[in-house]
């Protein structure tokens, strides 16, 4: 077992070094962003009412730019209380991983319109503060869909700025969500086999019934060191239509720091 573990680590390191070598001509950036998100949601498993509020929202993004393509790995976290118009409240937490790949073989990575694809993974959990039973509900989806990026660098009063907008639309994937009444997804406890139960709980995600799309527009000021400061506006919507439908809208304003890694 120990021998196996050591070999596994060696293989991982070799693969990592090989990858690093392949990206020796690339640029690596780390983005940290935090701010507020105006979040509104309706979960019919709880209520027909909209719950809204300001949540804290943060992002940590790793951006790898090579000659022909750019890859973005973005971790997301949102948390805060939401209330309906009568003051009933729930606590809402979101965790996400949003990946983009953009291709720019025919154009420069620093400027222009780039097509690509995205993979979104989001876990949302909420606890209703007024309900004694069945007060916890959650959902998760993993999806893929097209993505678009527009980069426009410009100079103003001798300073370098960049406008960047990224959009994504999720088309197909999978989802797991709380059941008709309880927190556990339907089918999760029907059989004896854990894996089969898991498969029973998984449902397809497809555009038309389910929706997830978002936009990220950033204005960045590039410092002489190569790092940047910026602000980002990020509207997004999502709908999971199966069972008790869940709808969400979020609009976040974030301040950003970019550190150029290499």
């Amino acid at each position: 077992m120990r021998f196996f573990s050591t070999n596994l680590i060696l293989i991982f390191l070799m693969a990592f070094l090989a990858e690093t070598d392949a990206y020796s001509q690339s640029k690596g950036n780390l983005w940290l962003a935090t701010g507020l998100q105006l979040h509104s949601s309706r979960d019919r498993g709880f209520s027909p009412m909209i719950y809204s509020g300001n949540r804290t929202f943060s992002l940590a993004t790793f951006d790898l730019e090579s000659t022909n393509k750019s890859e973005v790995f973005q971790f997301e976290f949102g948390y805060g209380p939401l209330t309906n118009r009568f003051g009933n409240s729930l606590n809402s937490l979101s965790l996400g991983l949003l990946n983009y790949t953009f291709y720019h073989k025919e154009s420069r990575a620093e400027r222009g319109l780039h097509w690509g694809w995205s993979n979104q993974n989001v876990f949302n959990i909420r606890r209703h503060n007024g309900f004694s039973n069945y007060s916890l509900r959650y959902d998760y989806f993993t999806t893929v869909g097209p993505a678009l990026r527009y980069v426009y660098p410009f100079e103003w009063k001798g300073q370098s700025f960049k406008w960047q907008t990224v959009a994504h639309w999720q088309l197909v994937g999978f989802q797991i969500k709380s059941g008709y009444i309880g927190a556990d997804p339907e089918g999760i406890s029907e059989g004896d086999s854990g894996f089969r139960n898991f498969l029973r709980a998984v449902d397809p995600f497809f555009a038309g019934r389910d929706w997830s799309m978002g936009l990220e527009s950033s204005l960045l000021w590039t410092l002489p060191t190569g790092n940047s400061l910026g602000i980002r506006y990020r509207p997004e919507i999502s709908t999971l239509g199966r069972g008790q439908p869940v709808h969400r809208i979020g609009q976040a304003i974030l301040v950003m720091v970019n550190v150029r890694l290499w």
Partner: peptide, 13 residues
Amino acid sequence: LLSCEQWVLPTDP
């Protein structure tokens, strides 16, 4: 996206 708000989240009953 902005116009989707009413479509995704119609107002309370």
